[in-house]
Design a protein around this nucleic acid. Sequence first.
DNA 1: TCATAACCGAACACCTTGTCCGGTAACCGA
DNA 2: TCGGTTACCGGACAAGGTGTTCGGTTATGA
Lengths: 202, 202
Amino acid sequence: MVNEQIGPGVPYRTEGGKVSGDRRVRRTRRLIQEALVALILEKGYDAVTVTDIIERADVGRSTFYAHFTDKQDVLFSNIEQLTFLHPAPGGGGPGELFAFSRPMFEHVGEQERLVRALMGRRSGGLVHARGEQLLAAVVRNELVAAGAGESAALDLLVTCVVGAFMGLLRARIEGETTASPAELDAAFRAAVLPGVRAALKP
Amino acid sequence: MVNEQIGPGVPYRTEGGKVSGDRRVRRTRRLIQEALVALILEKGYDAVTVTDIIERADVGRSTFYAHFTDKQDVLFSNIEQLTFLHPAPGGGGPGELFAFSRPMFEHVGEQERLVRALMGRRSGGLVHARGEQLLAAVVRNELVAAGAGESAALDLLVTCVVGAFMGLLRARIEGETTASPAELDAAFRAAVLPGVRAALKP
DNA sequence: TCATAACCGAACACCTTGTCCGGTAACCGA
DNA sequence: TCGGTTACCGGACAAGGTGTTCGGTTATGA
């Protein structure tokens, strides 16, 4: 269920990040995506039905199924728009550990509405899981580059770091805190860096 | 949706942790709960229908709705059986920070099946959210008792600690790691204690 | 033993899903 | 501007899930 590949079978699917040439296709896809985002914020992902979406988007039922296989397909199609998940490579220099943190917290603020819909509790946690996965890879690479040995202990450490970060991210998204991006970044570093440094020492 | 109170309206609901006196009631409730757990492990929470549950439990449809309002109601009714969420008060002595950690990881191992069904990714994350909430209260109390001032920064720290712990817990539940309870406990402490101690110092 | 309360099971109205198809309208390229 | 292509419409459809009702049956605890 988590690892479902969304293969073909849907006529107008565009591969990769490419945008369809036909204006009608772009328009329809955009309307459907926006409708889902709006509805999630109103009712929560689980409560939204396909019928809701096509009514809000003012699109025919058959049209919907010509573009997407189901509700979840629409949800995932929005991920590529989450800019904070694709941060700049950081410059390559290992000058600072976890350089992704600050920019991410800032991007989240800019895309508040979209992020809240896709990654908040109301989204059903599907996109959240994907975000954790992507972040874990980033963190792991950074730690290895900083001299950590590839061990089982490293994976556990990565899990902790990612868990802490995603916790803060969710708190921000859910409005449980009013802290600024700078404060969130500082809290994240203060919490995990001491432990990480100690693990990198010996 | 998250904060839905499951008020009355269901005839045979037992209040609090009390057990019904009638053997038929106990039997029926148990059969339904066990059926849901088994089905979650097979298909994932979202894919399970009420029809599935009553067939597996071999219980009449009207009987089901006499005891539970819906699928989610059954899910939540299982929480009280998760012993690791109700750890011994720790003896009161502030001898050791986060004393809950080790026993929790051990209890999880003992209740593998139930925990995996209720708190794994296949459960839809509903119980997971509740667990985070309970744990946050515990962590916050410990930190305050250890001398932390009640500030916004404290809440952020609590969020990080809980996130790290729940990350490890989920990794264990999902089978992403084969680490023993002792190793998980050690990894948790190594990751967060340095940061926590630094925050408690000044 | 017996009154009570729980269970059965069948039927129900309603909603959601995913598919199909002929007709209509918009698009893009020539 | 024109014309072939392509997308959209919209209505209908079967299948399956939900939650409720009600009269009859059976187990329970006193």
